[in-house]
Design a protein around this nucleic acid. Sequence first.
DNA 1: GTTGTTAATTTTGCATACAAAAATGGTTGC
DNA 2: GCAACCATTTTTGTATGCAAAATTAACAAC
Lengths: 234, 234
Amino acid sequence: MSNPQPSPNNVTSLADRRLLHETVIDQLRDLIVQGELAPETKLNERVLAERLGTSRTPLREAIKFLASEGLVELLPNRGAVVAPLKPEKMKEVFVVLGALEALAGDLACRNATEADIADVRALHFHMLAHHAAGELAQYFKYNQQIHSRIMDCAGNATLAASYRSLNAHVKRARYLANLSRERWDKAVQEHGEILDALTRRDGARLQALLRDHLANKLVLVMEALDKRKAEAAR
Amino acid sequence: MSNPQPSPNNVTSLADRRLLHETVIDQLRDLIVQGELAPETKLNERVLAERLGTSRTPLREAIKFLASEGLVELLPNRGAVVAPLKPEKMKEVFVVLGALEALAGDLACRNATEADIADVRALHFHMLAHHAAGELAQYFKYNQQIHSRIMDCAGNATLAASYRSLNAHVKRARYLANLSRERWDKAVQEHGEILDALTRRDGARLQALLRDHLANKLVLVMEALDKRKAEAAR
DNA sequence: GTTGTTAATTTTGCATACAAAAATGGTTGC
DNA sequence: GCAACCATTTTTGTATGCAAAATTAACAAC
């Protein structure tokens, strides 16, 4: 049997063999979203490629991909930089996100199964637990999951993709916003109302709540951006 | 006045010297949107690069960029194909576009200058002229410009970018929808009401009109897709 | 004829090489 | 000292080369 192992014991599933440039896209996106690569950082291809353990070609492909998402900006003949975190841009993003989340809330009230809503409720109580314990990072994680879950309940993958793309910008800002206890409590209370509206499948109310929730978050982010700017000035 | 004019005969402005891969992005997008590269066409890198007069590297970068826009799909180790035109996907896109256009309409009613509205009106009458003359291609052109113009009046570049990206999918479908005279007349009439609502800056009404207008367009596209599918079946 | 297997071809994915443009640094003239 | 200019270095943009994977074709067994 001189079979050179064509594929009898092919254990690697199709999902496993991810391509290098795809992992690079994810790595680079994480670096940007988590602030390790600060806004307006120049992306030196040689240095970054080495850091990510790859060559320039897949890195450049990843940069183009993220440029379309708006996380990096392309400067002709001068490479690329991490997209700046401009207050004006952030306002725009929140307005669009508001419309997308509102739409998702409305659709979710119509399309969610009872099991879906039970899942959101479970996440909600996890979030409450971390809020009570003062664990901000964990709180953020479940908070984010709740919003994503509602988005998924809407049953519109295109909507979800647009949301995810824009939400990356907001996530970036989160790492520099520090929540006061008062604001934090308020956000948690709003989440209670959101869960309530979803449970009663009151689409109109859920829309309004999500919009308000985002508007309050925008205030937080703007304050953080102003503060950062003030610090940069002195 | 020491105007920094780097070189006297530097006619090429910064916008002019576009990079090869940027022109490739636009060329490839046009090929897809205008249907020259049909849905599900395999993108052979060697062939396409030759056709666009470039090498594989810029082409691959362009493909990654358009993948993020959703116009092409990446198949690991199997290259890329033009994104299929699935009815399900189209429905999703229209729902999201509806929310974005409605938002734009509302913002436009608040932010547009009188000059902006006059521009839209001018485009509207150009469109009417081409409708009267039965010139479908020119009608589409002005129709599209009206919607884009309203989008611009909203004064939210992020919103506009999201709209443009999703709208590319719809444009693709347009090339296979053939408008009956009745439907065409109805669309034109709707445009009259849209212009009216904008003129009166009635945001709530403009939102509703734009949503309905899109819903009607969706019906057209779905019919065209069904028809195409039926033809493909026999 | 169909199915399964294997060799040949093609195509993709990544790395590298090379050319053009931009950034840097140093020198000169004032 | 400093501004302008030119040479050097670095970095980007594009093309090409090469290995791995996938597709195709050919062929054998049933």
